[in-house]
Design a binder for these strands. Structure first.
Lengths: 319, 319
DNA sequence: CTCTTCAGTGAAACTTTTTTCACATGTATA
DNA sequence: TATACATGTGAAAAAAGTTTCACTGAAGAG
């Protein structure tokens, strides 16, 4: 798309501006263009990733809250990031970084690591640094959201992991929920799908987000549910999902038939992972997080301060 | 110096500005300070390294010129970087990056790598990325410039290499040129100095700048030479120096007595290195570069386009 | 205790950057 | 060939960011 000539000029202008501190007007003279164009080209350089701005700061944690949650649910590890700025993107970025750091501590050669998709996972990928490991396999834990096979969202997440770990990907290019149990069985029997599912089962590490049950869920918006069907689900006590499998606040699975129509790793299987790593962000997800913890679908939790507090409140009010 | 509270606010403001794209005026409202202060704090965040701006671009090379130089002087490798922007800092940065990339290709476990100081070396250090190698030793090839033992310049360069390579440093905390041959011999006999010199001799890789002989040289300014002494040197044909040892355009050493009063690796020793890597930048250094190449003190050259052309001109005009 | 000094601040003046607007150029389409 | 349409430009207007300046309050000196 962008020619090399073009990019060279962008680089030149960016360097004159950011490395040498020239004013845009001086650059305009040098390049014989208007200062307006210089401004526009600098903007383009940002968008094309030629200019990178990074804010460097230590990873902070709220240890007391983390310890309380870890003990209460007998987790392997809990990490609570402080809410420095109350904005989802900022919090998710901090969570993503924390998860990423943790992964680079635990990943080793020959590992199989399963990942799902969601709103938080992209932030893990964004913060993933090159990790030195050999023969790692990345598997997709559950199908994509779009029904038209291969959602770009999940593909990008897997790709990020693959690049950072120098790994081999195993995708699950199927819908996450299908119309009948028979169809789900048939799909799972397909040799490619089956291979990925097997690897997901064997994975030592699984990383996924915790979803909140509600009409704003991606699954609803992607048309996986009729309105009445979803309402029934909510009335039956659904508070959240992991890999598109819905559970109640006590951790029990809501609808066994639905569960059987869902393709991908099961919640049972997650229980047995050495590392079942969940990331969650947002107060409204507190019930979902509590459900996930009570169901033991998670042994390593990454969560923000506000949500962590809300979770503890919920638990304490139950007692 | 800066309190943690203070830094936290800097980080917060930097993130609001660069990650969320808030205007300084909005941030001023949030933090209940004036927009002038926000501007000042952002400036401080830059200076403290909390905000990093990087221009990302591929490493470009002028292959034809490089090949011509490589062949003519029978070098192992020559790398000529294009002059995108005619400013010493920019060119040196490109050179530094090129050297740094090359080093990360060739460095291996148990290596000994000797480095000098100069105006170009800091740019190599700046661009050095973490290199995975074990038990590497970094030695200082020649004494610092200041006569007061331990020049910060060279210390910083060594430190950069040590950090990047996870290496152990061997410093040479002595003046580079002393008053008498006897003193030089005595200093070299000191057990610490001797150890470093030995390691420098054994080093598989040496990295250094090529200096130009002239009254603007750091050595002159540091008071190593009387004016008349230096004039004599120039009249005797000195065009440049490597590790404070002066040579003519044909590569011959200018003053044997001075050479013997110089502490550090000898030019002879550089000739036998597996990798004798020189970096040079600036048209005015062309003669010095030609001398270094003719003397075979270099087998791997990193140079900018303009200087490379000038060198070839010089050689061709001699023929 | 008073005076001086100094770092830090906001308001306002100033500079720099971005956006708007009108126009030009080239390209695809009828 | 004419016509719509997108793309890119500079001049000027508008917005955003920086610097100057005068003032404040705190720390140290007398």
């Amino acid at each position: 798309m962008a020619g090399i000539d073009n990019d060279l000029q962008l680089v030149k202008i960016a360097r004159l501006y950011y490395e040498l501190g020239y004013k845009q007007e001086q650059i305009a003279q040098i390049e014989k263009i208007s200062k307006a164009t210089v401004s526009r080209l600098l903007d383009k350089a940002h968008k094309e990733g030629i200019v990178e701005v990074k804010v460097v700061y230590p990873q902070l944690e709220v240890h007391e809250l983390a310890e309380e949650i870890r003990e209460r649910f007998n987790l392997k590890k809990a990490c609570v990031v402080p809410v420095m700025i109350d904005h989802p993107d900022v919090i998710r970025d901090d969570l993503g970084r924390a998860v990423s750091n943790f992964l680079s501590e635990i990943i080793r050669d020959e590992d199989i690591i399963g990942v799902s998709w969601g709103t938080t996972l992209p932030f893990v990928v964004k913060n993933l640094s090159k990790i030195n490991a050999n023969n790692v396999i990345v598997t997709q834990l559950n199908g994509g959201v779009t029904k038209h096979y291969l959602s770009t969202q999940s593909a990008a997440i897997i790709e990020g992991f693959v690049n950072s770990l120098n790994a081999v990907p195993y995708m699950l290019p199927v819908p996450t929920i299908v119309d009948s149990v028979e169809l789900a069985t048939a799909i799972s029997a397909d040799s490619n799908v089956c291979k990925t599912l097997e690897l997901s089962q064997k994975a030592r590490i699984a990383v996924y987000g915790i979803g909140k049950a509600g009409f704003d869920s991606i699954l609803v918006q992607a048309g996986y549910f009729q309105k009445e069907e979803y309402e029934k689900l909510l009335q039956a006590g659904a508070v959240g999902d992991i890999c598109s499998r819905y559970f109640r606040i006590d951790g029990s699975i809501v609808d066994q038939e639905l569960n059987q129509r869902t393709v991908g790793i099961t919640l049972e299987e997650l229980r047995n992972k050495e590392y079942s790593i969940a990331v969650a962000n947002g107060e409204e997800k507190a019930k979902a997080v509590v459900g996930a913890l009570k169901g033991k679908y998670v042994n390593t939790l990454f969560i923000d301060e506000v949500t962590a507090k809300k979770c503890l409140e919920l638990i304490k009010s139950e007692e």
